[in-house]
Simulated scan of single mutants.
Amino acid sequence: MSRIVYVNGEFVPEEDAKVSVFDRGFMFADGVYEVSSVIRGKLIDNEGHMVRLQRSMNELDMPAPATNEEIEAIQKQLIENNDLDEGLIYLQVTRGPADRDFAYPKEPKPSLVLFTQKKNVIDNPIAETGISVITVEDIRWARRDIKTVGLLAPCMAKMQAKAAGADDAWLVEDGSVTEGSSNNAYIVTKDGTIVTRYVGNQILNGITRRAVLALAKEHDYNIEERLFSVEECYEAAEAFVTSATMFVQGVVKIDGKQIGDGKPGPVAKKLREYYVEMALAEA
């Protein structure tokens, strides 16, 4: 049985889902998106995703296709329609269809598309083994704080990693790590300090990032939000990433160099435990 997806006011089988060839998301990547985790059939940390979605649309002068309450109702209906116990919901808003022109249309009719994906987000096997990353040049545009659908550069970075036999890539600008291809990046120094880049236009302020840093502060971890170099990564006691789909995931190798003992470190493992505990309580 095919999934039920939502497209501009209708719940339809995925094979019947269509948008206009003139949709600006298709022609210009003129769109934004969010991904929310689902555990036990419940949305996790969804309010933060809705707030960030609104911010992304505001930054691009894009009208909202529906209220946050209406969108959340659609999300919940999709969870029910697809009997989704664990996984994620992808949500995309574009400026909608218009004849091809670089200038925004005067009265756009935004498109809204949502779909679900089943996935083990809690008992993910790689949580035990960790992932390997390579560092690559960050070639993305200068407004990475807006969660746009223009993801070709991260796709290229991910494919560079796979070609090198790694799982993912960390993006580097002027010698410092910005973030992962689809996640926020962290190292843990030998004195136990968690280091991650400060929030600005250069990175996406992850919803999971905010929650994990709040949990780290609650449990008295020392945190530094600052630039950190590739060389610091090689010397780190451990490293990890956060995202809505991976929660907290240990990084065990960077550019072929083993980090720590080659297994997810104690800080990453503990923060993952805290986050999963919080998510289960919310679910």
Rank of each mutant, 00 (worst) to 15 (best):
T129N: 07
S36M: 14
C233Q: 01
A66P: 07
E225V: 06
Q117T: 07
F240V: 03
E173S: 10
E14L: 08
V241P: 02
D123I: 04
S181K: 05
L91Q: 15
D168R: 01
D23E: 00
E179H: 09
L78P: 02
F11V: 07
T178R: 07
R197G: 06
L227M: 08
F102N: 07
V35M: 04
L78T: 01
M246C: 05
I207K: 14
A166E: 11
N124S: 09
E173G: 04
V121F: 04
I131M: 03
R140M: 00
T94V: 08
E282A: 02
A281F: 05
E238Q: 01
V212K: 06
I122V: 14
A166R: 02
M156C: 10
A185Y: 05
A214M: 09
I207D: 04
I131L: 08
K147R: 04
D174M: 06
K217G: 10
S37Y: 08
K263L: 11
I39E: 05
A73P: 01
E59C: 13
M62A: 04
K42S: 12
F115N: 10
N205L: 12
E69R: 10
Y90K: 14
V252Y: 04
D167E: 09
V133S: 03
V7P: 06
G206Y: 14
G265K: 03
P108V: 13
K257A: 11
P65D: 14
M57D: 07
P110S: 11
A211D: 02
L53S: 04
K257N: 15
A211L: 04
V38G: 15
R272K: 12
L227H: 10
D145T: 06
D261K: 10
A236I: 02
A66T: 09
L53K: 09
L91E: 14
S176R: 06
G250F: 01
H49Y: 14
K109F: 04
L152F: 10
Q202C: 02
I254D: 00
Q75H: 15
E231H: 00
G200K: 11
T148A: 09
K42V: 02
A17E: 00
N8K: 12
G130R: 06
E15V: 10
S111E: 00
D83K: 14
A268Q: 01
A211H: 05
S111V: 01
R55I: 12
I126E: 13
T129P: 05
L78F: 02
D45K: 02
R209V: 06
I146R: 14
R3V: 05
L215W: 07
T116H: 11
S182V: 09
K109G: 10
G96I: 09
V136H: 02
V113S: 12
G206E: 08
I71H: 10
S132W: 04
E282W: 05
E232H: 08
N58V: 05
F247S: 03
K269Y: 13
E14K: 06
T129K: 15
P97E: 11
Y33S: 11
V199T: 09
L53T: 03
C233W: 00
I44S: 03
V32K: 11
Y221H: 12
T148F: 03
G180I: 03
D30A: 07
V177G: 00
D16A: 14
Q54S: 12
T196A: 08
K253S: 15
K76T: 01
G87S: 13
F115M: 15
D85S: 13
L78D: 01
I207N: 09
A103K: 10
F228L: 00
